[in-house]
Design a protein around this nucleic acid. Structure first.
Lengths: 228, 228, 228, 228
DNA sequence: GATGAATGAGAGTTCATTCAT
DNA sequence: TATGAATGAACTCTCATTCAT
C-alpha cells in the first residue's frame, strides 16, 4: 500500500465505522444533542461523576427534556451503550475483519490490516468504548450485554476463521482458538491503553510501525535465537 | 516444579504480595476498618458512585470519623491508592521479578514464573488495582503518580534487564525494549480481564496451563508452519 | 315493603342518583374518559397526590389534552366537584327526600326510607363525595360552594319540613331544627365511615337492619328503662 | 358543676390530653420544631400538598435535617401520626372515659361529661386528628394502625362497659353494643365537623348547651309525642 | 479519637403547563 | 380536537463536609 492509499483508506474506515446511533431513528435534533453531550461527559467524568444538569447544559436543553426522553440517567447510559455494543458485535462489523483476512495478500499483511482495522474502529469510537469498558465494571446489565453479543456473535465467527487458518497452516495448531483470539485482542487493547496512559512516550513513533511490530510479535513471538 | 512445590509457592507469594497499608501502622483499628470498607466499596461502585455514608456504615464508624482521618473523600482515595502504586512500582516488588529471571532455569520456565508471579501480584490486590486502573482515567493526579512511579522506576529497571536478555540471545534484538515489555504486560492483563468478563469460560482450564500457553505465545508467536 | 320491592327500589334509586356530569353532554368521549380517570385517581390519592400525567395515562389521552379542556389541574377538580355539589344540593335531589317524608306511611318507616335513600345517594357517588369531603378541607372555594348550596338551598327546605313535623308531633319540639337535622346526617355519615374503616366488622350484618337500627336510635335514643 | 368548676376542669383536661410526643424522648429542640411545623403544615395543606422545604423553613432548620431524622417525608408523617393513634387508643386515655362513667352522678350528667371529655380530647389535638382522618383515607398503613389500636384496644373496653350499663338499665338492651358506641361517636364527630364546615352558624351557641343537646338526643331520640 | 447533629449545595426526578403542529 | 416536544420550577432526597461535645 502506498502512503497515499493508506491515508485514504484510514479516512474511509473512520467514517464508515462510526458506531452511530442515528441511522434508523426519528430522533429530534435535541435528542441527538443530548446523546452527544452525554457521550462526551460520561467519557470525561464517568457515569457517576457526571450530572444530568451538566449534560443538559452542554446539550443546550432543559434538564427535564433528558428525562422525558430517557426516563432516568441510567436509561440515558443504556441508550448510549447498548446499541454501541450491539453494533461492535454486529455481523456487519465482524465480517469486515473476515473480509480483510480473505484478501489475496501475504498473511502477515492481512494480520497487520486487521489489527489496524480494529484499532481504527476503536479509535473512532474511543469515547463510547471507554464508557463501555469502565461502566461494564459497575453495571452488570452492561456486562451481560457484552457477554451476549460478543460471546455469542463475535466469538463463534472468529473461532471458525481461526480454525480455518490453523488448517491452512497460517496459525499454530497446538493452541486453542480462544487463546489465539485473546492474544490478538490483548495486544491491540494493550497498545491503545499504553498510548493513553503514556501519551508522550508513543507520540513519536508512527502508528503504522507500531502496528507492524505488534503483528511481528504476535506472529513470531519475542523469543531470541537462543530459544530455538 | 512439582505440584506440591507449586502450591506452596503460590501461597507464599500471595501472602507476601499484599500491597498493604498497615506496615507503618500507627493506624488504629477504626482506621483499618475504614480503609478496608473503602477498598471494597470503591472497587464495587467506583469512586464517584460510592458515598462516604456507605463506607462509614460498612466500617462501623461514624461518618465524621472518616473526615477526621482523611479530611476529604478524595483524601481517602489517595491514601488508598498512592501507597499501592508506590508499592507495586517499588524496587522491592520490581526486583522480585528480576530475581526470578536470574534463576538458573531454562528461559522458558523463568518467563512462566515471572508471568505467574505478576498475575498473582495483581490477583492478590485485584480490588486496589481495579480502583487504580479505573480512577486513573478520571483523576490526573493518579495518572501522574503512575507515570512517575512506573515510568521512572519500573521501566528503566526492566528495560535494562530486557537489553541484557537481548544480548544473551533470549529475546529478539530487532524490536525495541518497550514493545517487548508492553507485550508481556498486555498478555497478562488481557488474560485477567478476560477472566473477569467471561468468568465461566475460563473456569474450567487450569491457571498453570493458561500461563504456560501465554508464555508459549509470547515466546514463539501465533504463526503457523506456513509463515516460516 | 317486600323483599322484592326493596331490591327493585334500590336499583332504581342507584341509577337515578348518579350525580353525573354527562347530562348536558356535549362532552366528547375523550373528555368523559378524562373525567372518569380523574375521579378514580383523585379519590384514590387525593388531589395533590395525583398527577396529571397519571390521569392522562389512565384516560388514554395526551397530557396536553387535559389542559386544552380544563386549563389547569384545579380546573379539572372544580369541573368534577362543583356540579356534583350543585346536584346533591339541588332542589330536585332535596325534594326527593321530602317526597319520601310525605308518603302515606307510619313516620318510622318514612324515616327509614329517607335514611336509606340518602345512604344510597352517597354510596352511588362515593368517590366524588370522598373527593368533596377531603378537598373541601383544603380548598376554601369548595367550602364556600358547599356552604352556599347546602346552607342556602338544602337547609331552609329541610328546616321547614322539620318544623312541620314538629308541629305534627312527629319530632320533638324542645330542640332546634339544626340539631335534629345534624343528628340524622351524623348518624348516616357515621355509619358509612365506620363501614369504610372497619369493613369486615360490618360485612356480616344486613344493610336494611343497620338502617332500621339507626332509625330506632334516632327516634328513641339509646337510653334504657332506668332513665325514665 | 358550677360555672367556675367547669372552666377549671376544661383547662385541666386540655392540658392533660395533649397527645404529645415528647414524653419519653430525647428529641432535640430542632426535632421538636420540625414535628410542630409538620403538624401545622400537614393539617393545613394535607400531606401531599405540603413540601418538606416549607416545613423546614417554618421549623427554622435546613431541609436536610428533616431527612437525617425521619429518612423520608412519609417517615415524618408516620412519626407524627402513629404515636398519636397509639395514645388516643391507649388504655390510659380510654380509662379516663370509663372513670367519668363510674362517677356518682345521674347517668345523664355522666353522659354529658363523657361527650365533653371526648370533644375536648379531639379539640386539643384537632390538627393531628385532622391529619389522621384525612391521611388514613390514602395510606393503608395508617388505616391498619387505627384498626389495630382502636378495634383491639378501645372497642373491647368500651363494649364491656356498655354491656354493664345495659345490665344496669341505663342503656337499652335491644340494640347491639357496637351500634350504641357508634352512635355516640357519630354524634360527637358530626358536631365537630359541622362546627368546622359551618363555623359561623355554631359560633353563637354555647358549647355546653350543644353538648347537653347531643346527650339529650342520644338518650331520648328525636321522636315526638306522636310516636309513643 | 470519635461522634451525633446539622447543613448548603446539588443530585436525579416529577410537576403542571405551553406551544407549534 | 388532539398531541409530542419541551420546559421552569419545584420536588424529595443525598452528598460531602463541619462543628460542638
Amino acid at each position: 500500500m502506498t502512503e497515499k492509499d493508506w491515508e485514504k483508506w484510514v479516512r474511509m474506515i473512520a467514517d464508515e465505522y462510526d458506531l452511530d446511533l442515528g441511522k434508523t431513528n426519528k430522533e429530534t435534533l435535541k435528542q441527538k444533542k443530548i446523546l452527544e453531550a452525554a457521550i462526551h461527559i460520561f467519557a470525561e467524568k464517568g457515569f457517576s461523576g457526571s450530572s444530568t444538569s451538566e449534560i443538559a447544559e452542554r446539550a443546550g436543553v432543559a434538564e427535564a427534556t433528558i428525562f422525558k426522553h430517557y426516563r432516568t440517567k441510567k436509561g440515558l447510559l443504556l441508550r448510549l451503550v447498548i446499541p454501541a455494543i450491539a453494533k461492535v458485535a454486529s455481523p456487519w462489523i465482524t465480517r469486515s475483519a473476515l473480509k480483510i483476512l480473505e484478501q489475496d495478500k501475504p498473511f502477515r499483511e492481512r494480520v497487520e490490516d486487521v489489527i489496524l482495522d480494529r484499532v481504527l474502529l476503536i479509535e473512532t469510537n474511543w469515547k463510547k468504548i471507554k464508557i463501555i469498558l469502565v461502566e461494564s465494571l459497575f453495571h452488570p446489565e452492561l456486562r451481560e450485554a457484552i457477554q451476549t453479543h460478543v460471546a455469542k456473535s463475535v466469538f463463534p465467527v472468529m473461532s471458525e476463521k481461526i480454525k480455518q487458518l490453523q488448517a491452512e497452516g497460517e496459525l499454530r495448531r497446538d493452541l486453542p482458538d480462544y487463546v489465539l483470539l485473546r492474544s490478538v485482542i490483548s495486544m491491540a487493547i494493550g497498545y491503545l491503553l499504553a498510548r493513553n496512559v503514556f501519551p508522550e512516550q508513543l507520540a513519536q513513533s508512527e502508528e503504522k510501525d507500531e502496528i507492524s511490530m505488534i503483528a511481528e510479535v504476535l506472529l513470531k513471538g519475542v523469543g531470541g535465537s537462543h530459544g530455538d
